[in-house]
Design a protein around this nucleic acid. Structure first.
Ligand SMILES: Nc1nc2c(ncn2[C@H]2C[C@H](O)[C@@H](COP(=O)(O)OP(=O)(O)OP(=O)(O)O)O2)c(=O)[nH]1
Ligand SMILES: [Mg+2]
Ligand SMILES: [Mg+2]
Ligand SMILES: [Zn+2]
Length: 573
DNA sequence: GCCGTTTTCGGCCCGACTGTTTTCAGTCG
């Protein structure tokens, strides 16, 4: 069973429990267990089989038993009981902005509302206003939010969110009085999808910042506007939060707004044990014996994130690791990995030119790479069978190889490797003649077609390609497209082991639509000592050479150090 | 429900914003 199935069951339990008015901490226990399993590099089935599941942080005896039942029959006693006692659609009500456990419970108990249709109907009839805690504005908002929920998708893919974030960041930085403005939230942590955009601004005058944000041309609605925080919704449905604070507390607020929520909770709990209190305003000493009210505790730190961490006895933890997946313990013991950085990347080993489906020539790509400070690139156009991308046959590839030799003969600042993104065909054969493959400097093998194969066939196919002796890297290894298409499944251990044995690197494709491998698979790859990664843009234009940072961020999320990245080494390739 | 260099019981992060309230609960970030 896939980890995602366990996650979905636990989340359903948490949702249903909330509506029954259960202890919020009990609800949080199920949410935490779901989150931990979602972030696991291993298959939960393997962990369950080895009987060590209660060793996982957040999973105790009770949830372990639920998981075993879910494995056996897809559900567990607790979930069965909850489902039997509540309507199917009630958890949808929790997705409506402004409705939480208390309000949903009231709507169900007072008016029998058990799904979105009923909610909409009762609101239209004016039956909701007048319920205790509900007024006319709440009823109005419910109608609006139900409609919006039906219309909009869930999380926004990185590739769609990023341009909006860059534009809004630029806008914020131009407001007079702004000393600093940074992207925070899940985007700063390098997640592949985001729920919204988050910004932190340092300024002594919040007014003009809020005003600029709220009156931007792309704003559809100002959702909330207070003294330090404004939330807007853009025309495409994406929301954005901005938090404006005085420059001296910027570090504390940036840390707070970068999250993750769970990381913040863990940091704050740790602080409490040390007689401190952490909020977005800083780290404070807790006065008074029994915890006290503590509002007047002495300020200990607030200027920089480093100061915040230091105040709670930790070294700086990079944003990409702040997911409460063990980073605090690792920091405590000084065993945080030294993560690869964008500056470490000296080569880009996957890109296309006009020869296949790229927009620019070999020389243009090389010059653009030089301007970005790279030392080497590999030109890896598509192979013949990818006809939609004008893939190269042996003759055209040979011609390109001559072109590259000629380019390199001019002793350019960027050395160009003769490469190919060769299609791994249906049966695992490579879509190019062996003698040509052998003459190339760098060969990326990728699956683009016949992606619907069953896992076993796909595994055998990949193993054959890896075993060919011609590949240097496996390109976008799962084929997923964020928010659009799941990757194909295969036996990860078998394929990764084979790559390690054959000296084939696994790509972290930096295209924001792919970021493939993802953080969990990167972490799993790194468990094998000899297995290397290669982070490449897969650029189809000179501009897309700027995508490298997405891949680097994902590699960092997976805990990847420079030493494990082929193209972060000074020597070849 | 989980967890333990202050606890195996009794805690579990903390503040901003809104709407409905007459002093604050609920939701969200
Ligand atoms: N201390 C604390 N901080 C929170 C809480 N919820 C959110 N935050 C902080 C950490 C989050 O990263 C940050 C922004 O909140 P978001 O809801 O936008 O979450 P985030 O950006 O992490 O994920 P997203 O992709 O937007 O769903 O605010 C909370 O309950 N407690
Ligand atoms: Mg966010
Ligand atoms: Mg947010
Ligand atoms: Zn490709």
């Amino acid at each position: 069973m896939e980890n995602g199935t366990y996650v979905a069951r636990l989340e359903e339990i948490a949702d249903l429990l909330q509506v029954t008015g259960a202890n919020p901490f009990r609800v949080r226990a199920f949410q935490k267990a779901a989150r931990v399993i979602d972030g696991m590099a291993e298959d939960l089935d393997t962990v369950l089989a080895e009987g060590e599941v209660t060793a996982v942080d957040g999973i105790g005896k009770s949830i372990a038993e639920d998981l075993r039942q879910i494995r056996e029959r897809g559900s567990c006693d607790l979930l069965d009981e909850l489902r039997a006692s509540l309507p199917d659609g009630i958890t949808d009500l929790l997705r409506v902005q402004g409705l939480g456990p208390k309000k949903v419970k009231a709507l169900y108990e007072e008016l029998g509302i058990g799904d979105l249709d009923a909610l909409e109907a009762r609101a239209s009839e004016g039956r909701i206003a007048g319920l205790k805690g509900f007024g006319a504005r709440t009823e109005e908002k419910i109608l609006k939010e139900v409609e919006r929920l039906r219309r909009t998708a869930g999380r926004t893919p990185l590739a769609e969110a990023w341009p909006h974030a860059e534009r809004l960041l630029g806008l914020l930085r131009e407001v007079s009085g702004v000393e600093r403005a940074e992207i925070a939230g899940s985007l700063r942590r390098g997640r592949e999808t985001v729920g919204d955009l988050d910004f932190v601004v340092a300024s002594r005058e919040p007014g003009p910042v809020m005003e600029a944000f709220a009156t931007d041309g792309d704003v559809e609605e100002v959702v909330a506007r207070g003294d330090t925080k404004t939330t807007i919704r853009l025309s495409g449905g994406l929301s954005a939060d901005v938090r404006v604070v005085p420059p001296e507390v910027f570090g504390a607020t940036l840390h707070h707004f970068t999250g993750s929520k769970e990381h913040n909770v863990a940091i704050r709990s740790r602080a409490l044990k040390r007689g401190l209190r952490v909020s977005e305003w800083g780290v404070f000493r807790r006065d008074g014996e029994d915890g006290g009210d503590a509002t007047d505790g002495e300020l200990v730190a607030c200027a920089t994130e480093e100061d915040i961490f230091a105040a709670v006895g930790l070294p700086f933890i990079p944003p990409e690791l702040r997911e409460d997946r063990g980073e605090i313990g690792a920091a405590e013991e000084d065993r945080l990995p030294e993560l690869v950085t964008l500056e470490d990347i000296v080569a880009d080993l996957h890109m296309h030119t006009t020869a296949s489906d790229g927009r620019h020539s070999v020389a243009r790509m090389a010059e653009a790479a030089r301007d970005r400070g790279l030392k080497r690139i590999a030109i890896t156009d598509h192979s013949r069978s990818l006809t939609v991308a004008n893939g190269l046959d042996a003759r055209r590839l040979r011609a390109q190889m001559e072109e590259i030799d000629a380019y390199n003969a001019g002793d350019p600042a960027v050395r160009v490797l003769k490469g190919l993104e060769v299609d791994i065909l249906e049966d695992g054969a490579l879509d190019m003649d062996d003698d040509v493959l052998a003459a190339l400097d760098w060969v990326v093998g990728s699956v683009h077609q016949w992606m619907g194969q069953d896992p076993q066939t796909m595994t055998e196919r990949l193993l054959r390609a890896i075993g060919s002796g011609f590949l240097h890297a496996l390109g976008h290894p799962t084929g997923r497209l964020v928010g659009r298409r799941d990757g194909f499944t295969f036996d990860v251990d078998a394929v990764f082991d084979a790559c390690a044995d054959a000296g084939v690197a696994l790509e972290v494709n930096a295209s924001p639509w792919r970021v493939d491998l993802d953080d969990r698979l990167i972490q799993r790859a790194l468990e094998r000592d000899r297995l290397m990664l290669t982070i490449n843009t897969d650029a189809h234009s000179t501009a897309e050479l700027g995508q490298m940072h997405f891949g680097v961020r994902m590699a960092r999320r997976g805990g990847c150090p420079r030493s494990r990245v082929v193209n972060a080494q000074d020597e070849s390739p």
